[in-house]
Nucleic acid binder design. Sequence first.
RNA 1: GCUCGUAUAGUGUAGUGGCCCAUCAUGAAGGACUCUCAUUCCUUCGACCCGGGUUCAAAUCCCGGUACGAGCACCA
Length: 487
Amino acid sequence: MKERRTGLPELKDAKKGNVVLRFAPNPNGPLSFGHARGLVINSTYREMYDGVFILRFDDTDTKVKPPMLEAYERIQEETAWLTGRKPDRVVIASDRMEAYYEHATMMLEKGYGYVCQCSAEAFKEHRVGKTDCPCRNQTTPENIGLWEQMLNREFSPGDVVVRVKTDMTLKNPALRDWPALRLQDTQAHPHPREEVGSKYVVWPLLDFQSAVEDHLQGVTHIVRGKDLMDSTRKQTLLYEHFGWKYPETMYWGRVKVHEWGGFSTSKMRLDIEEGRYPGWGDPRLPTLEGLKGRGISDAALRAFWLELGITQKDISVPLSTLYAHNTKVVDAKAPRLSFIREAVLCSLEGSKIPETISHPVNPNDDSMGLRTWNMTDGTVYIEQEDVEKGHLRLKEFADVDLVGSRAIITSFERSDKRPIVHWITEGNSTEGTLISTSNNEIHTQKGRIEKHSLKSGTIVQLERIGYARLQEDGSFILCHEASVDEK
RNA sequence: GCUCGUAUAGUGUAGUGGCCCAUCAUGAAGGACUCUCAUUCCUUCGACCCGGGUUCAAAUCCCGGUACGAGCACCA
């Protein structure tokens, strides 16, 4: 039998210590679930090859997907949280405009590109018809002259664009003389970074910016989504002009999560602005912040993405897969706590009730100690649903028969197969709240929560309910929503 | 429409010509342990898209078909 490969496949032509990788999100919002893939895969390769991992902000669009100022800092924090270390290098595209201009100038001087004044519609006809547009045959001085006019703000957005000269008869229409730089109205749509603002009107497009930057940073391997496959081909054509070697490239396919369907940073941003969600950390949103807030661990996220690997297949996975990873990570360290939903207060009747009862904090780890409850109250809270069963075993305590709101102790030893239920006394509990999400709604459940002195952020296991994270306001939020596979 | 890509159990994944009547995980069903409907452990179930071809030998290579996805933006 063949050996099963574990972990990620080897990178082609990779030498330990000589690998440079990057992940380049648009800072138009904090990172979301999908971004985690790029982070996890690339940073894992960085570890495998003892290489360099670059976090690059591709913030070259101020209108369609405008950057969000807070995102720059936030994304760096999220990267550190998810990958366990800071990126080796951080590059911000909007800081690198001079380098892009320099290469654009070089490209025009050497005749690798031209300044095109055709409208988008007019050029589309040339692209489809495989014909040269009139601008294509301009001389180098003409192109340089137009380029300077662009830089001098003598054109308006939409009037002119710099194209890379490829071949108008290329089989793939997407590659024919693709646009490299364009104009943006940064008066109306200034860049949110103060130092950039309205300073530039000529901006590189992703394919050009990314291609030049990858070369400048010495990127050796690119691992990214297969939606960027044509981008690789475009960029390779540019690299050929310059005589550079394109990095080795690998792709992963589309991932759809059953419960979320499609989502995008732009859409979430709009929803938040319009008040459909209070913020990026809302537990219903597939943002890293939202997931973290619900108690999904960084280790679970890493295991999840590593397991999917980098196949080019388009897949659809249920959230329960992520939850299974999370349970593995979280269970061993999760203190157990009693939370009684729809709590019914019953009087405890019987003789020889001990003064205290002790339960393990975590039955699988004695070193976590015991939680001890004072039993002198003479009352217990039991869930309504359990009360209806009539005969119960109060976990680690006693068998009781329920008559009205009286819980009559019949035995301290387990005497029959009656259901074992969780419970709490009045004195050992306080009012508690459990938050859960399902079907894109937030549900709040009141109940009695066992007293504790845990720090917010702790992931606990509410006995017979599930794992939950203690929030700053003292409420608990369920980590793994009851997932209903609808699609 | 043009171009590119992918197709292995319910869901993911391993597998680049013989170690494969196909790996591992998850899931489902059953069971053990357990004073939680948790964790752990055991058992069982279950797949190479279809049709040709190459070969002594094909999940693996080639061709065709089908399905699904992506690109063809002055977005990233």
